[in-house]
Every structure is written in C-alpha cells, then in structure tokens.
C-alpha cells in the first residue's frame, strides 16, 4: 500500500487538531512550514509556554473557546511552566490523559528521555539539526499518528 492510498482510505472527515507547545518562534515557523507542505488536513494551534498550554487544554482564560487537540507536540524547556510539568499534569488528568503527547525537543539527555516516558509520554523525538531530517520526522508523525493510529474519539 502506498502512502496516498492510506491517506485516501483513512483520512478523517474533520480537521485534525494539533497543539504545538514551543517557545522558539523559529521552530514554530519551521513546523508550520513543514506541516503546510504535507498532505494532512490539519489545524495547528500554538502556545508559547507551559501555563498557556494548560490553560488551552482546560479552556481557561483567553482559551475558553479553544478546540480539544487530537495530538500535542510538546517541547521540554519552556518558560514559566516547564514541559516536564505540563506532561505530568496532562497524564495525571483523567480528562486529558488520552491525548497522545509527542515530546519534540533538542535535549538528548538520557535523564530527559527516561523522565518523559515515566510520565507516560507517547513518544520522545530529538529534533534533528538537518532540515531534510526534520521534514522526515514531521512526515513520520503525520503518517503514523494522524493516519495509521486510531485515535480516541474524545
């Protein structure tokens, strides 16, 4: 089966909602660009720190009308509230814990990897330096998480 055939059979009817938690505007833009080049019909929301991320997810403050994401791309080193804490709060919340969280970070440290999985991250990816590699990573995420994987309805 080719990639396009998967997409044609499994393509969801509604927009895929993705939340990107990332404080580096360069990274945000890069992710937006690469997702835009892809084939998945998605909507990307961006928050810049951990506090905003949790407000977004709990539909509080400025985010009272935010959509519930199907997938979260989470950086670890964030201002105000750290990505590790955000991950823990998501995974300890009965309401949010089913949302897949992909830790996408520059950190290569073993401790970070171990800790992320201990807090039930769904996968841990180190951002590649090379653009081609990065594009491959984003395509893989799209292919696996947004097409192959059957996500929970709510």
């Amino acid at each position: 089966m080719t990639e396009s055939s998967i997409l044609s059979t499994e393509c969801p009817e509604r927009l895929i909602e993705i939340l990107l938690v990332e404080d580096n505007p360069g990274d945000v833009r890069l992710t937006q660009e690469v997702l835009r080049e892809g084939n998945i019909f998605n909507h990307l929301s961006v928050v810049e720190d951990g506090v905003q991320a949790l407000e977004f997810l709990q539909q509080q403050g400025n985010y009272s009308h935010s959509p519930r994401p199907d997938l979260i791309l989470l950086d670890l080193n964030l201002p105000r509230k750290d990505g590790r804490e955000v991950l823990a709060e998501i995974k300890f919340s009965t309401h949010l814990k089913r949302i897949p969280v992909i830790v996408l970070t520059t950190s290569q440290s073993k401790e970070d990897v171990l800790r992320a999985y201990n807090f039930h991250a769904n996968c841990y990816i180190t951002k590649p330096i090379d653009l081609e590699q990065f594009i491959k990573v984003v395509r893989s995420i799209e292919l696996f998480w947004l097409t192959i994987v059957k996500l929970p309805a709510e």
């Binding site: 580096n24 360069g26 890069l30 520059t106 951002k127 330096i129 090379d130 653009l131 990065f134």
Partner: peptide, 10 residues
Amino acid sequence: LRMITSYLQL
C-alpha cells in the same frame, strides 16, 4: 545551530 541549518536549507 538547528535554526541556522534548517532555515538555510529551507
């Protein structure tokens, strides 16, 4: 470094 590389490549 990643920013430099990636944006040059983009």
